[in-house]
Amino acid sequence: MSAVTGDSQERAVQCRGLTKSFGTGEARVPALRGLDLDIDYGEMAMLVGPSGCGKTTLLSIIAAVLDHDTGLCRVLGRDLKKLTVADKVLLRRQAIGFVFQAFNLIPTLTLADNVSVPLLLNGVGHAIARKRAGAMLDRLGLGNRVDALPSELSGGQQQRVAIARALVHGPRLVVCDEPTSALDAKTGDAVLHLLREVALEENRTLIIVTHDSRILKYADRIIEMSDGVIMQSGTSQSPVPDTRSNLP
């Protein structure tokens, strides 16, 4: 598989009739029921809906960490059904950035080492990876903490490190799972602003699963899910405030 590049002629994410169930027999629980979805390059989409509606399942399928049952799911021009396990590993490694709810920074590694991980996975040498990680951390306001451990940082700072890790290798798609749920309102606001500003450069696509209604104003499009299907999809009308000066 060659390096993944965006194709301006098609959508970043395209799902048609997507289904996914968990369990077997009578215990079989459908999580997605023939879902259709399009997300463009350069778009920041937020998936919202009640718990158990299938948001995280959809995000996992788009991020190529979970296989769907039937239907079509094209991500960055790749039909996921046709990819081998190794192809999916490569797709994730090269083209997708991850931001998790609980940050998931490796506690025994420094910030620079944590941020270096995607570069190292892509074969970048340790010294260059650390340099680029340092530059990314600097961009996110943590340039003076590269050798600190995650435990020495506040929640907001840790999430900024996680964002740096998600973006350092220049992915075309960034998936975020509840990125503000562990943060207070002010910090969450600042993190989302930063995420939008940095991540949407270079025509990147951002997909965010969230329960936090306060951050919906940052979305280009809000996709509301219920019971495994999309109920409605619309654009956010709220202006995006500049909170860069209030970084946590």
């Binding site: 994730r92 991850f98 998931n104 995607p118």
Partner: peptide
């Protein structure tokens, strides 16, 4: 964390 590395493409 190994799971995170796996998701990130390890």
């Amino acid at each position: 964390y190994f799971g995170v590395l796996k998701a990130m493409g390890a």
